[in-house]
């Protein structure tokens, strides 16, 4: 029988939020078409490092396994991406896995993306439809616009665009590209439009849209192909106009 092929993983691990990170190397048997997650599952079955030491199983986050939930993002060979969609055959070996550095580590490869949800709250990325009585059906959306908006709605808060952004880090308060684009999505919705100025004012709060420095990494790395930089430029224009309305007190300042 031919010699068993192996795959080598070098994983940056961390026992808890406040512990020091360390690296461990694992050699696991190669299987055809395996991805990073199936590799991690292999390690979980037999958590023994390359030099034969028994260790705790590596922890990671996952859910959909088809690149739609965003939970499994990690830094693979230097760049942030979804581990469920990272095929071992297409990766250089050894495969280096690290948690995304932009977020606090919970354990091993699991990070806490709470800041992304705080960012969505800052820009009010939802449509308020609750009332004390039935508000009836909202205005309809043209089909062409719906198709366009659908592309923006694909964001899964995976955090890859924040990880790739040089301005999202521990020294800056920038909320990152994802939420900026979500403000555009909800402002484009015929019902959401009714609260457009609230979202624009959210974008103008500290850490908002002014934190963008146009490195444009976000649009290159987004797994969903969201036109983030177009959204940012569009929201730049909209917030500038809103700022004028706020200052000069136009009737449309609401």
């Amino acid at each position: 029988m031919a010699e068993q092929k192996t795959v080598t993983f070098i994983i940056t691990r961390q026992a808890g939020p406040d512990s020091a990170p360390y690296k461990e190397t694992f050699n696991i048997p190669y299987k055809k078409n395996m991805n990073v997650i199936s590799g991690l599952m292999e390690i979980r079955q037999n958590p023994v490092t390359a030099d034969g030491k028994k260790t705790s199983p590596v922890q990671w986050d996952m859910n959909c396994l088809e690149e739609v939930c965003g939970a499994c993002s990690m830094v693979i060979n230097g760049t942030a991406r979804q581990s469920c969609a990272a095929l071992v055959d297409q990766l250089e070996q050894p495969i280096r896995l690290e948690p995304m550095s932009t977020f606090p580590v919970v354990r091993d490869l699991i990070v806490d993306r709470e800041r992304m949800f705080d960012a969505l709250k800052q820009v009010k990325a939802w449509i308020p439809i609750d009332g004390t009585h039935d508000l009836g059906p909202g205005p309809r959306m043209p089909e062409k616009k719906r198709q366009w908006a659908y592309e923006l709605s694909k964001c899964m808060s995976c955090g890859v665009c924040l990880e790739a952004c040089p301005n999202v880090n521990d020294k800056s308060n920038f909320i990152g590209p994802a939420a900026l684009s979500q403000a555009r999505l909800f402002n484009a919705h015929p019902t959401g439009e009714m609260n457009a100025s609230e979202r624009l004012n959210g974008l103008m709060e500290d850490g908002g849209i002014d934190g963008c420095g146009n490195s444009q990494n976000c649009v290159q790395v987004c797994p969903k192909g969201i036109p983030l930089t177009t959204s940012i430029a569009a929201m730049n224009r909209a917030t500038n106009i809103q700022a004028f309305k706020n200052f000069f007190g136009s009737d449309n300042a609401h």
Binding site: N167, K171, S172, N214
Partner: peptide
């Protein structure tokens, strides 16, 4: 306040 990362993300605009 920026952290340059052209090593891993070597795109033109970066």
């Amino acid at each position: 306040v920026a952290r340059s990362n052209t090593k891993n993300y070597g795109f033109f605009r970066n």
